[in-house]
């Protein structure tokens, strides 16, 4: 099957490295969240840890799918500044479909889950939202921007929550979390426009990397240094 690659050729592998870095950070946060849960016994902390773990797993699936596209079982051709590739095996095709579908599903689920636990919504809302997440995952296959648009919406709500959290706490740490989610929201906005110019994929990946790097800085600041 012929597919379109949004990444410029020189960026192949760099995006994988960016996502590997982001994955490690989400695993670190998940682990710390679990430590928190072990002491507090608070279910909110357990789900916080679980959703960060799922974000990391989502990245892992995207890394595997991208690795397969860039380096294994595919032939790519460049026509008028656009890169198309052909999968040369069923395994490769399956990896693409499964890899990106699981990535999208877990990303939507995790960020929505974070929003859900922070806003203390009623239980029924979660299952209804899970249905929409499944619909978006399945039907955004050909129209990638539906996924990024949905991610932008969820992240915008999280950003608004963290803005209010910062306004209430006025701490450097809460500012960093707000800034991180601002970067993640902007990265999704950049991803929406990747069909216009491949450079927007680089912009999106870079903004996303900055967002996770800020989370790492926050993690180091909070866990390594006594106030």
């Amino acid at each position: 099957m012929i597919r379109y690659i949004f990444s410029p050729k020189w960026f192949y592998g760099v995006d994988i490295a960016f996502e590997l870095f982001s994955m490690i950070i989400t695993f670190l946060i998940a682990r710390y969240g679990y430590e928190l849960y072990k002491i507090s016994g608070n279910k909110k902390h357990k789900y916080f840890s679980l959703f960060f773990l799922l974000i990391g797993i989502a990245f892992l699936f995207k890394i595997i799918a991208n690795f397969d596209i860039y380096y294994v079982n595919t032939v790519s051709i460049e026509i008028a500044n656009s890169i198309f590739y052909f999968t040369t095996s069923h395994v490769s095709e399956m990896l693409f479909i499964l890899g990106f579908s699981i990535f999208k599903f877990l990303m939507l689920l995790s960020f929505f889950g974070l929003l859900y636990i922070l806003w203390d919504e009623k239980p029924g809302i979660f299952w209804l939202s899970l249905y929409f997440i499944l619909i978006i995952t399945i039907f955004s296959h050909g129209t990638y921007y539906i996924f990024h648009l949905s991610m932008t919406m969820i992240l915008a709500f999280l950003l608004s929550y963290y803005y209010r959290n910062y306004a209430e706490k006025s701490s450097r740490e809460s500012f960093l979390i707000m800034l991180s989610f601002l970067m993640l929201t902007l990265s999704q906005l950049a991803f929406i426009t990747i069909a216009l110019d491949m450079v927007m994929y680089v912009v999106g990946e870079t903004l996303q990397l900055i967002g996770y790097a800020i989370l790492l800085y926050h993690y180091i600041l909070v866990t390594r240094y006594e106030k």
């Binding site: 916080f48 959290n165 701490s171 979390i177 866990t223």
Partner: peptide
């Protein structure tokens, strides 16, 4: 615990 509290507060948990 102080570190954990700072972590929780900054994530709005």
């Amino acid at each position: 615990l102080r570190k954990m509290k700072r972590f929780m507060e900054s994530f709005g948990l």
